[in-house]
Amino acid sequence: MTRSIMIVGVGGQGTLLASRMIGSVLLSQGFDVKVSEVHGMSQRGGSVVTYVKYGEDVASPVIEKGQADMIISFEALEAARWVSFLKKGGRIVTNTQQIEPMPVITGAAEYPADIVENIRALGIDVTALDALSLAEEAGTSRAVNVVLMGVVSNMLGIDEAAWTKALEECVPKKVIEVNRKAFALGRAVRI
């Protein structure tokens, strides 16, 4: 059976690194893996989504409405935007950080209130955390992605060693220490 994970966020938050890290972990477990990314225009502060699919034999690299087993959201509004992609019984991990999109900045729209509560009210299992604060605690606001990988590392039934190895593969050596710390802080989050 193919399982599907979506990573959603805002261009520039490091979703690509996260998807590559998960892909690397899953590959090490002997799964067939496909990771689909979007580059170019969408990276410029827009809503970004990457798909990770794994199983015995994965065909399509994309995930659609009602098909994701898990959504990892780097930003609260993006969790709301993509919730319809979740399979019945799927779960969401979301950063509670809010990044205002241009229509909110210009006053043409309002940033929705109570996003996590509204998603929970749909009967969806939500793990919500302030990944930005944890990243800053680790030493850099840029490590939000790795904090979230720490959280997710408790959810896929894969040994920590595989995650640590993937982290070392995916993160540049000169920033590995701060990212190790970020990963550990994420992994310590109660789920």
């Binding site: 410029r44 827009g46 709301a80 935007r81 999109p101 729209a109 998603i119």
Partner: peptide, 17 residues
């Protein structure tokens, strides 16, 4: 496929400079 929908309007997030 069946899916849930967020119960309120979600503002778009277009790419920006």
């Amino acid at each position: 496929d069946e899916f849930d929908t967020y119960p309120a309007e979600v503002p778009v997030r277009p790419p920006v400079m």
